[in-house]
């Protein structure tokens, strides 16, 4: 961390986590914060931004993104997650392709051109199918810490087929499977597969160009990565820090604003 004041800040107020990235004039990351999103999001955004800018708002450009983007009152501009993710991933990977982002409340697939522009995108419909929430609900039911789900899924010797993609339906299906004595790890593996298939279906509907890239908190799960590669028929590229891609994109946009682009 440096004492230098940033010139550009990106803040991603997601449904589960809030991510902040601060950049200097050269685009170097000065500071990075990840914390749980507070129910009092507006206050939280104010506190984070006050801290990171030292209150000197006139010197800093700020781009807010994520569900709570309009609650960051001090931001210069609010931009959707779609544009920010595209910007962030293009910067990180240096090429276009198809980005799959699996977030807490929603998942999205974004087709990015060779120059980094958004060509097309889709998002899951309002139910939790195909999102992190789906795994969370299921993890709760199975009493497995969510962080361990990926490992458990990968190490399971066998897999139970989960037909329901709806989180609510899946929960009752899990109860049924447990009642039949199915081992928990087999069910976990089936759940991860079910989530991936749903997301892959979303991707297919866009006639997605290669390569595939993955971001979002769920990307940290090794099982999701492995199953996704299977479902898409090829490896999936992962940025170093998949969770902060949206915030990074927002910060890069802020830098563009700062430079008058």
């Amino acid at each position: 961390m440096s004492n230098k004041l940033p010139v550009a800040v990106g803040i991603d107020l997601g449904s589960a986590f809030t991510k902040v990235i601060a950049l200097d004039e050269e685009g170097k990351v000065l500071q990075k914060i990840i914390e749980d999103t507070d129910p009092y999001t507006e206050k939280q955004a104010g506190r984070l931004l006050d801290g990171i800018t030292g209150g000197e708002y006139h010197r800093v450009s700020i781009v807010a993104t994520g569900y709570g983007r309009k609650l960051a009152k001090r931001s210069t501009r609010a931009v959707t997650e779609i544009s920010c993710h595209a910007k962030g991933i293009f910067h990180e990977m240096g090429h276009g392709g198809t980005l799959i982002d699996i977030g807490g409340q929603d998942s999205k697939v974004i087709v990015i051109s060779d120059t980094g522009a958004v060509l097309n995108f889709t998002m899951n419909d309002k139910c939790a199918a195909g999102t992190g929430r789906f795994l969370e609900v299921s993890a709760n039911r199975l009493k497995i810490p969510i962080e361990l789900m990926g490992k458990t899924a990968l190490e399971a010797a066998s897999e139970v087929k989960i037909t329901s993609t709806c989180a609510v339906f899946a929960e009752s299906e899990i109860v049924g499977l447990l009642a039949k004595g199915k081992p928990v790890d087999h069910i976990v593996r089936g759940l991860a597969r079910s989530l991936v298939l749903r997301v892959a279906a979303m991707a297919h509907s866009l006639h997605p160009p290669k390569p595939f890239m993955l971001s979002g908190g769920v990307a940290r799960s090794p099982a999701i990565r492995a199953f996704l590669a299977e479902a898409l028929g090829q490896a999936v590229e992962l940025p170093e820090e998949p969770q902060i891609i949206g915030a990074l994109g927002a910060a890069l946009m802020a830098l563009d604003i700062h430079k008058g682009k």
């Binding site: 959707t80 997650e81 958004v118 309002k126």
Partner: peptide, 22 residues
């Protein structure tokens, strides 16, 4: 995609805004 019995979801709003940005 909307359900007219409900207010517009944040998600649908985001889609529209992202479309404008793109």
């Amino acid at each position: 995609e909307v359900d007219i019995s409900e207010p517009a979801s944040a998600q649908v709003q985001t889609r529209l805004e992202a479309f404008a940005e793109s």
